[in-house]
Design a protein around this nucleic acid. Structure first.
Lengths: 206, 206
DNA sequence: CCCGGGATCCACCGATCGACGGATGGCGTG
DNA sequence: CACGCCATCCGTCGATCGGTGGATCCCGGG
């Protein structure tokens, strides 16, 4: 038996979900919430296996809500069900710890599969979300104009090495390390090592 | 009509796929190959919409084969169909440009869906592959004990601001900025700003 | 009630970094 | 082959950073 809590600020959606999930005899809806704050309270109280939740909510919302649920009820898997599949929504939510991300136009069978997968601690993503995620993973390949040497240097810098230590590790002088870094700054269009590391991370170069 | 090329070194698998895909009237198998080299030749000649390919092959294999197909026939989507879902296989293949990654134990309907999705330039992933991908994206949600102020400071540092500029932006003195950074270094267990930015990125704090 | 821990604030000093100028060798194009 | 482009290499100098040692305020536990 998979115990589910439904979180959405629209009563209609909550009832709809409760009805749909009720048709399956391995699901049991054990709670509802209409806001982020309420969700945290309910989930802490009933400790469901899966929380099916919207992203746009009053009080703590979106990724922040997911993060707090994960922190307070680690055994509860958060399955996000939303109409939004924009980049800004998807990635922070996944990073915050959501186990799945479905769009509201998904067929009911897909929702059932997703809830069961979530209960088994497996990920299910809507196709458009999967596409977004993969594109993000793949971004590095497109824009990666750093030479091997430059990437080596930057990797060591990101580990906290000083220029001198990098030079020693690569058997080159400190001055040469600085030259490589200058080229990295130019290519990534940043002014210093800290922002270079940040830009490289965002583009998946590290 | 979706034109498909099948790549696998086992004749049995090629015949099986040809038969399965033949049952759908929107698919047309326009070529086969038993090795990476042969695949490149065939695909370059017939320019299919989708290439369904195994990973373990003679000649160019795995991610390298995907990369070369993408380079020589950009209009062909590569759908990987394999028994292996280990981390070492999945990520390089996705990064090399595969549009989808299915396991051979997927039901036939899922294979059909995946081929159609690939033809539409959408991604479809097997659940275990999606899980792997998401886990990779998801930074250690573990320890994020930075104060709001510390996170603000670090965010600006990651954007390439100097300590003085950060101080001006937050209406505090440069000396105070440094103190906050000292605490960040201690909490993240790193020696300097560059590695602090790196650590923060890995833990999803930025 | 007092004490400690955490967040916030500040100044000085030695070590490090970033900017600049300059040099070599390989690789592809015209 | 000559030319330019790029990756690689090196030293000097002013600006910036990191380490240290303090200080105040607030909040919760003993």
């Amino acid at each position: 038996m998979i115990r589910v809590v439904v979180v959405d600020d629209h009563p209609v959606v909550r009832d709809g979900l409760r009805g749909m999930l009720g048709t399956q005899d391995d699901f049991e809806v054990v709670g509802e919430a209409a806001s982020g704050q309420e969700a945290l309270t309910v989930i802490a109280a009933v400790r469901p296996d899966v929380a099916v939740t919207d992203l746009r909510l009053p009080a703590p919302s979106g990724a922040e809500l997911v993060r707090q649920i994960r922190a307070r009820a680690p055994s509860t898997r958060v399955l996000v069900l939303t109409t939004h599949d924009t980049d800004a929504d998807v990635l922070p939510t996944i990073e915050a710890g959501a186990i799945g991300y479905l769009l509201k136009d998904a067929p009911r069978e897909e929702l059932f599969r997703a809830v069961r997968a979530a209960a088994r601690d497996e990920t299910v993503l809507s196709p458009s979300v999967a596409t977004r995620l993969v594109q993000r993973m793949r971004a590095p390949v497109s824009a990666a104009p750093l030479s091997n040497r430059e990437r080596e240097v930057l990797t060591l810098v990101a580990q906290g090495k000083t220029n001198r230590e990098v030079g020693a590790a690569l058997h080159i002088s400190e001055a040469t390390v600085k030259t490589h870094l200058q080229h990295v700054y130019a290519k990534l269009e940043v002014p210093d090592r800290a922002s270079a590391v940040s830009a490289a991370h965002q583009r998946g170069l590290l």
